[in-house]
Simulated scan of single mutants.
Amino acid sequence: MKSTILIIEDNDQNMYMLSYLLEKNNFNVLKAFNGQDGLRQAKEFHPDIILLDIQLPDMDGYDICKNIRHNGVPNSTIIIAVTSHAMGGDKEKAIQAGANGYLDKPINPDTFVSQMKKIIKANKKYE
């Protein structure tokens, strides 16, 4: 069975690249271009994995992560922050907000899926 990934990302090019790579690697992909839609889809569809941009126009990604963790989305959902917001302490802040892992942008198309799977496997919830 394919895992379902919700991508919460406001940049069209990044969304295209992430969804292309994931669909090519046999994942079902849901897309949200802002935080509110991402929260709605997370609660409605309970994806296995959420790729979350931290810098969104309508909501802070850290707040979205906290909201997902405390509002009916299964604890088994893996949240990975994917962001260019890579300053000292940002990875720790994402983990404290409830993320299971953190990947920097720009992503490397050749290694992105394997990096993501490594985070999922480390959380022992990947099929």
Rank of each mutant, 00 (worst) to 15 (best):
I80D: 00
D110Y: 14
N71W: 04
V29E: 03
I50C: 06
G98D: 00
S84N: 11
S3D: 08
M15I: 09
I50Q: 02
L56Q: 07
L103G: 02
A81N: 05
P106I: 11
M87N: 11
S76N: 13
S114A: 11
L103C: 04
V73H: 00
Q36N: 12
K121V: 10
K2C: 04
I49R: 01
Y126F: 12
A97R: 07
E127W: 05
A86V: 11
Q13C: 02
G88Y: 09
L21Q: 01
N26E: 13
P106T: 11
L18G: 01
L103E: 00
L51Q: 00
L52H: 06
I49W: 01
L39I: 15
R40P: 10
L22I: 05
Y20T: 12
N34W: 09
D90W: 04
I8N: 01
M17N: 00
G98Q: 04
R69S: 04
D63S: 14
Y16S: 09
L56N: 10
Q41S: 08
M1D: 12
N123Q: 10
R40T: 15
A42Y: 02
K91V: 03
K66N: 12
E9N: 08
G101L: 05
T4E: 12
A32D: 06
C65F: 06
F27D: 06
N34F: 10
N28M: 13
L52I: 12
V73D: 00
D63W: 05
V82C: 12
K124M: 03
D10C: 10
H46I: 03
G35P: 07
I54G: 04
L6E: 02
K121D: 08
N108T: 09
H70R: 13
E44Y: 07
D48K: 06
G61C: 10
H70P: 01
I80W: 00
T111L: 09
E44C: 10
Y62S: 05
E9I: 12
I5K: 00
Y62P: 07
G61V: 08
L56V: 09
E44M: 14
L22A: 04
C65Y: 04
T83N: 06
L51P: 00
A86M: 05
E44K: 14
P106E: 14
T111F: 09
